[in-house]
């Protein structure tokens, strides 16, 4: 937008970022910087899993059951071939974790995109039109929120699993997880957006667009929405972290990803059966990865909230 108005001072996007407040605060907050670096490393590791992983955990031909339950390389019985040890099926734990992080992140990201899409449409509509539509949609959001996401997700997935049988279910598990987590959490976005729309609606530029004769759709999406983006950004970080936790919990209950294609939660779950016999690493190492992943996202979310300080919906 700026480039068009002031052609004399061409700015690249990178320069704009470097001059922004956020970048300034970012350089002064060690916790945020460390979290961002760790998050970037983990995302890179997940994206490059096929290149980085020493073994393809989905390829049964590469597995050898004789290698199962080997401890990490630094302990006495460890094998230097398997840095973090192996799981019950003889898969290299490092490779499985890289691929698992990939699955967890994918589900988290897509579930949040779905949440944001539904929430933005509902929130904009409720806030912009007000009145009865607003009352009805927000009542709906209240009711949906009063049933916890976890409960709804467990029940829906459990019923689907019982109805379809394990075989078919495990093939569509990823899609189901995204849909369920995505649909269950839309009120979070809807409430936040509605609150900012109510504030924006009073401003003069909205009045101006109305006078110019634009339709409600155009005003909502082209003019009001861009001004509501900062609260969306703030809750998105935390929501992705929450979605990843939910996914892990569902997979732990056996309602999520199948053992042949494990996410972090499914890995922890498969290791839990062996923890009583002293095979701690199958549970603990993916557990640490999961906690670190979620922790850095929560820390970044906290930091973003402090910096941007949007009026989040409270209570």
């Amino acid at each position: 937008m700026n480039e068009a108005v002031v052609p004399a001072r061409p700015e690249t996007r990178w320069q704009r970022i470097r001059q922004s407040n956020i970048y300034y605060y970012f350089l002064r907050d060690k916790v945020a910087m460390v979290s961002a670096v760790i998050l970037l490393l983990m995302v890179a590791g997940a994206l490059l899993a096929p290149v980085l992983a020493p073994q393809n955990p989905y390829d049964m031909a590469q597995l050898d059951i004789m290698n199962s339950e080997l401890p990490p390389a630094w302990s006495e019985e460890g094998d230097s071939q398997f840095l973090l040890g192996t799981d019950d099926q003889g898969r290299d734990l490092l490779s499985t974790i890289l691929y698992g992080t990939r699955i967890s992140l994918t589900i988290g990201l897509f579930a949040v995109i779905l949440q944001a899409f539904l929430g933005i449409v509902v929130g904009l509509t409720a806030g912009y039109f007000g009145g009865r539509i607003d009352g009805f949609l927000m009542r709906l959001a209240d009711i949906q929120l009063s049933f916890s996401t976890m409960m709804v997700a467990i029940i829906v997935l459990a019923v689907f699993q019982a109805a379809f049988g394990m075989e078919l279910y495990s093939r569509m598990a990823m899609l189901m997880l995204i849909l369920v987590i995505g649909i269950a959490e839309w009120p979070q976005y809807a409430r936040t957006i509605r609150a900012s729309v109510l504030a924006e609606k009073q401003k003069e530029y909205v009045e101006a667009t109305r006078v110019m004769g634009f339709g409600p759709g155009r005003i909502m999406f082209r003019h009001i929405l861009p001004n509501c983006l900062s609260p969306i950004l703030v809750i998105s970080t935390v929501q992705i972290a929450n979605a990843i936790i939910s996914e892990a919990a569902l997979s732990f209950l056996g309602l999520g990803m199948p053992p042949s294609q494990p996410s972090l939660g499914a890995l922890i779950s498969s290791g839990f059966e062996y923890i009583f016999s002293g095979t701690w690493w199958i549970t603990v190492i993916p557990g640490i990865v999961l906690v670190v992943l979620v922790l850095v996202m929560n820390l970044l979310g906290d930091w973003l909230r402090d910096v941007m300080n949007p009026k989040l919906y409270k209570g």
Partner: peptide
């Protein structure tokens, strides 16, 4: 508390079992 929010409940449970029971 922010660490606590980031640990899923089943993991807390497993770790407690591992430390205090096993």
């Amino acid at each position: 508390s922010i660490l606590g929010i980031s640990i899923p409940v089943f993991l807390t449970a497993i770790l407690l079992i591992y430390v205090f029971s096993i």
